[in-house]
Design a protein around this nucleic acid. Structure first.
Lengths: 239, 239
DNA sequence: CAGCCTCACTTGTTATAACAAGTTAAATTC
DNA sequence: GAATTTAACTTGTTATAACAAGTGAGGCTG
């Protein structure tokens, strides 16, 4: 055997998916059917399916079956820092709800203290942890640290609305955002909150926002499902 | 049982990793040892380890063992389109080699034809597929379509050097880049080329570069290992 | 007819077993 | 002593088996 059986089978199934034999949303044959078709043991069929799931081509639902994944992604456009994630998605016709999990005053980790230039005497900030529901489905978890004076002032507003619009409305303009985008994998907590399998690919947008005078206002991370979202940015030479 | 055994075990191991009991690069206990410690079957231990691998915390080497992953990432800084990936990485002290897999004239897919505004009479372009080796290790696969006249002119230079510096040296300034960053998972080809397991998280940077007069010059995708790379960008309000 | 139950299906978990294949170091051979 | 072989480890593949748990349809009961 030059190649493992499970790979051989998952490649055949992959070909059928990319060829359109199984359309997005459609149910793949059950384990029992695949066992009969390929004449292998259940463990091999399950491994073949796991290969497809790992590649993001299929998703399994206990009791129901394995289904071909939908491949549409919503775009976060990173233009000027003013109009943000929320509006941009709503422009794409995606209903968006904010569910705050945590909103409290904490002592952030060293790295955040530094980025927000908190006074070392009393290095506190407001921590907001929220889930963004797109079309009633959790798509993004946002963890943001806000300067204490701003968190206190805008507590009620921040808990029900998107962050940046609230700030702009209260005369805290965002002049600059330093961002970093990376890939991570769902740990058990994120797996549960975003309702994805353990290890699922996630796209993380780390950002530090500065207001006039280059003073930092907030620092946070938006962790989105990697199979549902992407980021667009335009880079101009003339700056 | 409220929670599967394999999850229970992988969580205990995860805690040891995050607590620093097992440092990056260190070898985890062998399957045999874990079977003895947790008093479960091999299949359960293997599933627990698979959970860690899926979360990007460990990597398995047949015959050698399972090792805690290193967590350092190289940063691609997206500033002005001029200085690019290559220089940026070299500034970070990372040795970079280009290995061209394919360089030929082709008829690109419809979507690329449109982006490059190719004449529908003869919609050809040069396709370059290359592997970028960082410290002799494959880290990124780049697939780029270049306008035919440029591909022809700069064939030899493009095959051994980075794309953007070559263009700049030949008086083809890049004025604007439209980019999109997304997450994808390694299919068998990428898995083989980048030497990562099937389904491994990858970070893809799609880009279309325009020269003076807003004329498109090239369109491509840079597919990097998600566990090794990230993108940084600075967004200014004043544009 | 509404509600409940049962049954047949699905995927998920776990155990035992055997062999394959990559790695390393000790033992053997030349 | 150097090269080769062997043995003991490691993880990878595959089979068989049994039970758990989620789903949905059909039938039974009130």
């Amino acid at each position: 055997m030059s190649q493992p059986l499970h790979l051989d089978i998952s490649e055949q199934l992959r070909q059928r998916i990319t060829a359109g034999d199984y359309l997005p949303g459609a149910k793949l044959p059950s384990e029992r059917q695949l066992i009969a078709e390929f004449q292998v043991s259940r463990i091999t069929v399950r491994r073949a399916i796991a290969n497809l799931v790992d590649q993001g081509l299929a998703i399994a639902h206990q009791g129901k079956g394995v289904f071909v994944t939908e491949r549409r992604k919503a775009v976060y456009t990173l233009t000027s820092p003013g109009l943000f994630v929320a509006e941009d998605l709503q422009n794409q016709g995606i209903a968006l709800t904010v569910k705050t999990l945590i909103f409290e005053q904490v002592t952030p980790p060293q790295s955040v203290q530094q980025l927000l230039q908190l006074p070392s005497a009393e290095p506190t900030a407001y921590l907001q942890k929220k889930i963004l529901l797109m079309e009633q489905v959790p798509g993004c978890m946002d963890i943001t640290y806000v300067l204490p004076e701003i968190g206190e002032l805008l507590a009620s507003a921040l808990q029900h609305q998107m962050t940046f619009p609230v700030l702009e409305r209260h005369n805290i303009p965002i002049e600059r955002v330093e961002a970093m985008i990376e890939c991570q994998n769902a740990d058990p907590e994120l797996s549960q909150q975003l309702q994805v399998p353990l290890g699922h690919s996630l796209l993380t947008y780390h950002h530090t926002a500065y207001t006039t005078g280059d003073r930092p206002v907030l620092h946070g991370a938006s962790i989105s499902r990697g199979d549902r979202f992407c980021y667009a940015v335009s880079l101009n030479h003339a700056r």
